[in-house]
């Protein structure tokens, strides 16, 4: 006679709940179409450089330190743009 085992049933249910929960955790980024990725990465890089140049020019005009803030901000802005691209690429790589 098969014994009724509520404990075993409960642990089975527990495992199922855990499985569903794990599915609901954030995975690495959902697979976008490659066109979407291309759109994102291009603008990310350009906006970093543009932000650095415009911010640097404005800071120079305000502080009267031409051209030092432009040089510093352009380098930092470019680095930040590359940082954003690397971050996107890293999440895409996790998928594969």
């Amino acid at each position: 006679m098969k014994e009724h085992d509520p404990h075993g049933e409960m642990s089975e249910l527990d495992a199922r709940i855990k499985k569903v929960r794990a599915e609901n955790e954030p995975k690495s980024e959902q697979s976008l179409s490659s066109a979407g990725v291309a759109f994102r990465i291009g603008i990310d890089l350009i906006s970093g450089v543009a932000f650095g140049v415009i911010g640097g020019l404005l800071l120079d005009r305000w502080l009267g330190t031409t051209p030092w803030m432009l040089i510093v901000m352009m380098v930092l802005g470019t680095a930040a743009g590359i940082r954003n691209v690397i971050r996107t690429a890293a999440t895409l790589n996790e998928e594969d």
Binding site: F39, R40, I43, D44, S47, G48, A50, F51, G52, L76, G77, A79, A80, G81, R83, N84, R87
Partner: peptide, 22 residues
């Protein structure tokens, strides 16, 4: 830290420019 802060502030700019430019 400055690079990370700038990359955080670039996000809304690149987000808006992407949609507008396209």
């Amino acid at each position: 830290i400055p690079i990370e802060i700038i990359s955080y502030f670039i996000r809304p700019i690149s987000l808006s420019v992407r949609l507008f430019a396209n």
